[in-house]
Write a protein that binds this DNA or RNA. Sequence first.
DNA 1: GTGGTCTAGACCACT
DNA 2: GTGGTCTAGACCACG
Lengths: 134, 134, 134, 134
Amino acid sequence: MRFHIAPSDAVPIYRQIVEQVRRQVASGQLRAGDEVPSVRVLAQAHAINPMTVSKAYSLLEAEGLLERRRGLGMVVATVRPTSRTSQRLALLEPTLRAAAQQAAQLGLSVDEALALFKRCMTPPTDLGGRDESR
Amino acid sequence: MRFHIAPSDAVPIYRQIVEQVRRQVASGQLRAGDEVPSVRVLAQAHAINPMTVSKAYSLLEAEGLLERRRGLGMVVATVRPTSRTSQRLALLEPTLRAAAQQAAQLGLSVDEALALFKRCMTPPTDLGGRDESR
Amino acid sequence: MRFHIAPSDAVPIYRQIVEQVRRQVASGQLRAGDEVPSVRVLAQAHAINPMTVSKAYSLLEAEGLLERRRGLGMVVATVRPTSRTSQRLALLEPTLRAAAQQAAQLGLSVDEALALFKRCMTPPTDLGGRDESR
Amino acid sequence: MRFHIAPSDAVPIYRQIVEQVRRQVASGQLRAGDEVPSVRVLAQAHAINPMTVSKAYSLLEAEGLLERRRGLGMVVATVRPTSRTSQRLALLEPTLRAAAQQAAQLGLSVDEALALFKRCMTPPTDLGGRDESR
DNA sequence: GTGGTCTAGACCACT
DNA sequence: GTGGTCTAGACCACG
């Protein structure tokens, strides 16, 4: 399981974790029963506060995506099987709506924006890791 | 000059102002020498605190986009002439990069994501439906 | 980390803070990763409003000199390594250019002005005498 | 009579005028009886508000440096002859004291600062006209 | 009229 | 604990 944490991003760390777990479950990269890294491991690996990881996991537990196996860590819950494409698209839509609004305010044409988006997706584009957006 | 302020949005008011001015300058809707609404006028028009507007304007001044005409208000600075399409695309890119990353984590194909993005842009945007605000 | 705040000075408090941090970073008294006093601590220590300190820190963050460690305070940013003497001289130059102009308008010779400047620097500076403040 | 006005400077316009008149009187470039440009002329020449010029002249009149010749404009007052070098140095000293303090905080040696100051004075240095200090 | 500065205090979010 | 955001209101300086 891979996490990409950017402490200097505008979106808080705990939310970055929550959203990445959600997406990986929705996409099938995480399946029912799969173990998720322990709080301590994840915290150390990214040099973040264990309480931050714990908060994220607690939210995911409350959401029903993770289950606590006492003494054994947390695992992906017996997933409700509804991971259809439509669902995954719904998770992406808010971001794209915001992008669409920005493009309009910038006076960009639909084609220009689409071309740029395509360019952002096609290369595995390893670079650009650090989004100094904030 | 039009401002759309959503006090209940996740992004702070002063930042909404900053970003809208940035985009309007980039898109040519605001040109060098154009006056920007006075702090008090803008504050009253949107029922927000003058200091909030002032904070936004100060940031834009520090950024070099606005200039203070002492005692007279603020105007768009003698813009460095690079307001080409490439610049506007650059302002949109971070958002699209983030969207691309999310799409990948969701296991969506490039075509699926592009189609959704196109749908988000094409209609005069039937928005108002889902308030992803806070 | 030492701050000298003069509330009755002509230059606003938040700017005094900004400039002192800038100089201490440039002179190497503050290094990358060093913590800067918390907003509330600095505010209490000098009996000024926390928002005033916060304003200064925000400007320094926008400038790239400070970084926010969320929930933990602010630290000196991973400084771009160019803190050489030339940089420090560059920070002093505007002031000296203004002084040079004044000296010329006063009809002073270069030697007279240099001698006065030397006198201003050599003693441990018996300053405090004339408060050109407000 | 030459004035250099920088509307975007940190020091207010009216004060720029006041100080430049003071210096030119002190240095003998302006003598008793010399006419000073009319409010309207000076205002037009520098594209500033006549009220601003008027305010400066009023302050200089209150100070005794200028006299109002009704219907004829303002002239330099019957100057008290004390324009010794020591006086002119005194006018320059506050600026140099501030510069000295900054140099110290920047960790510059006396020699380094003196060398820079000398460089600022020696060339007629036509460039650098616009001090974007603010 | 314009913006700038500062204060006082509330509430929120993150770690 | 940390900083961020916003409000309300006072006072100042400039033009």
